[in-house]
């Protein structure tokens, strides 16, 4: 088990958080390789279905990141997203999933350091929990 590394699916918005990941790379900032970045136009584009789909396909943790409130490229996409994810996370908690598997953040394209730090935080949190099994089918586990 000591070899186990979590898989984190990160939905990053094109205009801010993805930019910060890019900048982190260009600036040679180190962050764990467990992050699988998926670029989305806006954090508001992330449907709860995506998050469930990731969990069902073996993600151990999910991280959604967008522009700071007020800085959304589409003016208000992240503000709708905020409501959506608050409710989503509450419902996941309520139905028994560990809350530490789901992470949300606001990171602007200039905040490469915050990106790297948050990435480390997310990976650490999920690592402590161990592999996510809740949404994995039994048969898939055997294979």
């Amino acid at each position: 088990m000591s070899e186990w590394e979590p898989k984190i699916v990160a939905f990053l918005c094109n205009w801010c958080s993805y930019g910060s990941a890019d900048l982190a790379g260009v600036s040679r900032l180190q962050y764990p390789h467990n992050i699988r970045a998926i670029r989305v136009p806006c954090s508001g584009r992330v449907n709860p279905k995506f998050i469930l789909a990731a969990l069902r396909q073996g993600a151990d943790g999910i991280w959604v990141s967008g522009c700071h409130p007020g800085d959304c490229h589409y003016i208000e996409g992240n503000l709708y997203a905020r409501r959506k994810f608050t409710l989503l996370k509450n419902l996941l908690d309520y139905t028994g999933m560990e809350p530490e598997r789901l992470h949300f953040s606001w990171i602007s394209s200039a905040e490469a350091t915050k990106f790297a730090e948050t990435a480390r935080g997310v990976v650490d949190a999920v690592k402590t929990l161990g592999p996510a099994r809740h949404f994995i089918k039994r048969e898939a586990e055997v294979a």
Binding site: P69, R82, W106
Partner: peptide, 16 residues
Amino acid sequence: PPLDTYRPGDPEPFFK
């Protein structure tokens, strides 16, 4: 409806 709107000061208890 609540998911079709927002307020600037909506609570965000766990956003980093």
